[in-house]
Amino acid sequence: MPRFLLNRLISMFATVFAVSIVVFLMVRFLPGNVVDVQFGGDATATPGARLEAAKRLGLDGSYAHQYWVWISRIFHGDLGKSLLTQRSIAEIFGSALPVTIELIVLGLAIAVSVAIPLGVISAVRRNSASDYASRVGGLIGLSIPNFWLATLLLIFFSRVFHWVPPLQYVSLFKHPWENLQEFFMPAVAISVFTLAIVMRMVRATMLEVLNLDYVRTARAKGVPRWRVLRKHALRNALIPVVTVVGFEVGVLIGGAAIVEIIFGLPGVGFTLLNAISNRDYPVIQNATLLIATVFVVANTLVDLIYGWLDPRISVT
């Protein structure tokens, strides 16, 4: 096991390292750089002025040198500064991360808390009207674009209830009520896809578990139905669900990116997209590296938890 863990660690590290090189090179192949953004379309700049501007921003050295500067600074705990605003990137992430994390946690909470009961009902009343409704609903949930759903929610609430969420991002800890109102629509919008998947998964595994011998036995022994469901069936059915939820974190990060932009929530996705359009290399590089690291670690953890929950699966 320790050897296996070590292997996983090395593999994670290698992946993140490779990502860093790929991203570093890709941003530099982009047409235009931050100097072009600053000079704008007016082209009032002489080549000399452009070079001078690039030099001041540390963009004049060789790629190898620039890469080395970036990576060696990371190991000293220095993520560098935004080329455009000279804000420290640690500070940028410090304000962006809580937004994204809250969005994902809320989205996940909504998805799971709705999906599990629906999935269970659907499985228990197999082929009933409610089963059919949730299955079709699930497929619709997989098909509706979250950015469209976000727009529809905004239209719906403002036209029907004359309610619009607070528009300024406020911290959960300072103004919890405003914050939750603000995150309600975006969290619902990103939760729907995950909700549908988790629901389908719960239904499928419940169907499987309900047919297993020990569940039938328990029923035969006269254990009350809800108790069988809760104690025997649901608990076992939830094991694969944990895995799905783990992988859905990635889908949610993607959904969060787009919804952040729509609702103007200054999270990681919002920051990343702005940085891409401004050619702000260090911000793009560090943001992608951060997302990759979080995602790779999360995937590894899910694998480990899965293996631990269900010893039948060998994690090789």
């Binding site: 047409p31 235009g32 072009d36 953004v37 379309g41």
Partner: peptide
């Protein structure tokens, strides 16, 4: 084109 590419090509 996105603004940065446009700026680069225009320049």
């Amino acid at each position: 084109q996105d603004p940065a590419s446009f700026g680069a090509n225009n320049g």
